[in-house]
């Protein structure tokens, strides 16, 4: 349990620290957009690229923001509870959060499978099959803009981010458990 917490937190910390600088990538794209618009022909790709960067920024940065404790809670009662009581409540309610993340992840995986040309109802086995070579790529989904980027990369990023978020929340679950047992984390 300690090992899991250490590894997951370390991975998400690194990922988050890298994504943190995404703000400058976003800024650069938007500045290029205004420059190209003012002096040349407006770029086709800037707005959509900025949207992709933003998605990566907040989805992949999500687990780190959980570590930072940035996610607000309503502390009408919660604020006055003892650490142990907080941990007890969290232990239960974080399971609900984990459930939400599982549903999100399932949707993301099936949408990613779709973007790779799979239209069936077993997205996980399809993606597994892709890795082992049992399945083939189908029609690749493209964005319906003039730039027409393929959509699987950003969807894959979302899958990865939601998976990391899931791992992080399981780590939080373990931490609550340890807190209740009175162990150091």
């Amino acid at each position: 349990m300690h090992g899991y917490i250490r590894i997951v937190d370390a991975v998400n910390l690194r990922v988050g620290r890298v994504m943190m600088y995404g703000i400058f990538a976003l800024m650069a794209i938007l500045l290029w957009s205004s420059i190209s618009k003012a002096f040349f022909v407006p770029s086709l790709w800037t707005l959509e690229m900025a949207q992709f960067v933003m998605v990566a920024y907040y989805i992949l940065g999500g687990p780190y923001s959980v570590q930072l404790g940035s996610n607000v809670r309503m502390d009408l009662f919660y604020g006055d509870w003892s650490p142990k009581k907080k941990a007890w409540f969290d232990l239960f309610t974080i399971c609900l959060l984990i459930f939400y993340l599982c549903v999100l992840l399932y949707g993301a995986v099936s949408s990613t499978a779709y973007s790779l040309g799979y239209w069936g109802s077993e997205p996980f086995s399809y993606l597994g099959g892709l890795v082992t070579g049992a399945e083939e790529l189908g029609r690749l989904e493209r964005s319906s803009t003039a730039w027409r980027p393929y959509l699987w990369p950003i969807k894959a990023v979302i899958v990865l981010g939601m998976f990391l978020m899931l791992l992080q929340c399981i780590s939080e679950f373990f931490k609550d458990y340890l807190r209740i047992k009175g162990e150091a984390i």
Partner: peptide, 13 residues
């Protein structure tokens, strides 16, 4: 949009 780009139009979606 794809068709109109040849006339300098920048299609936005």
């Amino acid at each position: 949009g794809r068709f109109l780009t040849q006339f300098g139009v920048v299609p936005v979606n």
